[in-house]
Design a protein around this nucleic acid. Structure first.
Lengths: 290, 290
DNA sequence: GCTACCTGTCTACCTTATAAGACATTTCAC
DNA sequence: GTGAAATGTCTTATAAGGTAGACAGGTAGC
């Protein structure tokens, strides 16, 4: 990694500005505040801001014009892959893009206490741990650490894992996968993950932890996944249900068809991670067709 | 702001050790190598190692015993609030905890292009923008930026917004809220958000963007929410449905009763009864800074 | 042309991180 | 008890990151 290692504050500001540019909060073509304004905003000196801007310029994210200002490059906003939460597995195929997997690690280990508890393993019981990185069009976007009870893990090989989704392997082995529970959070990239995902240390990551059970309530898979938010985000559609006073949102069970591929990409500037500001009338269509 | 942000090498070592602790490579209760050994291992001075260990101690991940050694803490994980995705609004009340709201900003503005597009506003059409911070037991955990079309925003007052949920206000005003679309990602805390959430600049945040429509397909609310992942995370239970070859996950429609927070952590014993795939809370992710 | 504001560049100075030790104190195995 | 090894607490010195300000030169609005 070329790294260039800017010091702390400069790097932090670099990451923050980069984030705002990539997710569209700073619209392409627009002018950044002056270096002195940025310095004041973040409470640092102008030199430090300039170091951050230097790196952004190297990245090709900004265009600095002496006398005029610093501008966000036009093409710098990126549309992340969108994973529909109700259809977690098949979305990648639907996107019609090429994904591949790199298997970083494969071993039988004594799992940590939290993993053992989640899977319902007894003390001393081992688990197969694998670490994989998923790439789309050659670019890594997820870092997956899975634990599977040893007795289940032995039903497939390391080579299998490098070429097939884990859930598919489990089902091929006759494991019935029925229920799962997952939570979503955020964290920062540590050294290993940063390198695997081609990120700077300290970059933000989406974090997903999922435990999968078979019908008997026996844990069959523990997944800890980290996603690059600029390349991957979760999406879901909701409908409002329930009587007045007890209303709540329920997820829409969508058919597993592909989402209409976005044709244009300009200017949408998805605030944070909004995948596609989604044509407003779509809800109309769906409603009438339902 | 207490964090003191260790510098480069110390931070790198902190992150490395932290990762090894969190993913179980360093077993809870076990002793770390001596400070001098660690220093030699990473090629830094002992002072630097000690700084990293200081931070780990503040995080509660290690226990330093003079003369004896440094040990990995047994558990001590902070449980964040858990928001069930299918019941996003009411979970806070269900938790039986006191939440309050601080209204930071309230104004009618010209929305950014992306917000205008999401809400279906015409050019020049204004929107009411409010910025609120939610606190639980006095501790801030979310930063909410909402945009509402001006014609709808005028149906309630600034004081209303400071005391009632926005969706409640909308429904009180006769707006029928029917569909929504949201996506979840991760980002870094900028200066204003960091201050509002009592975080360091550059801390990781969960990001949620939601657009709500009425039955006619007209956008009524655009929400951009940022959550402290150490205090708030999303959770969902899933079931596997569909025929072989077209299987996918579907969310479980749960009754809106409160979930007893599972404090158990051990093997769960005989789980012959399958009906309750109770979420075994996995303390995978931990706060990273603050 | 005048002016205000921007980036580019440089200098001098201060603060902090890191290194490399010395030394005290505690713990634990023997 | 003794001694090895661990953390806690200093010191001194060097390196690196960050600050503050001045100044040159370009650009654009008036």
């Amino acid at each position: 990694m070329v790294d260039a290692v800017e010091p702390l504050k400069a790097r932090r500001i670099y990451l923050l500005l980069r984030e705002r540019i990539l997710n569209g909060a700073l619209e392409p073509g627009s002018r950044l505040p002056g270096e002195l304004s940025i310095a004041a905003e973040y409470g640092v000196s102008r030199v430090t801001v300039r170091r951050a801007l230097d790196t952004l310029a190297i990245d090709g994210l900004i265009d600095r014009r002496p006398g005029s200002g610093t501008f966000v490059q036009e093409n710098s906003s990126v549309q992340p892959i969108v994973a529909d939460l109700s259809n977690v597995l098949s979305h990648l195929v639907e996107m019609g893009r090429r994904t591949s997997v790199r298997l970083l690690s494969f071993a039988y280990v004594n799992p940590s206490e939290s993993v053992a508890a989640a899977l319902g393993l007894g003390p001393g019981e081992r688990a197969q741990r694998s670490i994989r990185v998923r790439l789309i069009d050659g670019a890594p976007f997820s870092y997956l650490v899975t634990h599977v009870p040893e007795r289940i893990g032995v039903t497939y090989s390391e080579a299998d894992l490098a070429s097939m989704p884990l859930l598919g392997l489990l089902e091929r082995s006759g494991i019935v996968v029925e229920e799962a529970s997952q939570s979503i959070g955020a964290t920062l990239a540590g050294p290993d993950v940063a390198e695997a995902l081609a990120l700077e240390i300290g970059s933000p990551l989406l974090s997903l932890t999922r435990v999968v059970w078979d019908p008997s309530g026996q844990g069959v898979e523990h997944l800890h996944a980290l996603y690059r938010p600029d390349r991957y985000s979760f999406h879901m559609d909701l409908v409002r249900t329930g009587a007045v006073g007890a209303r709540r949102w329920n997820p829409v069970a969508k058919p597993s068809t592909a989402r209409p591929e976005p044709k244009k990409r300009k200017a949408e500037g998805p605030k944070s991670l909004k995948p596609k500001p989604r044509p407003v009338r779509v809800s109309n269509q769906r409603r009438t067709s339902t």
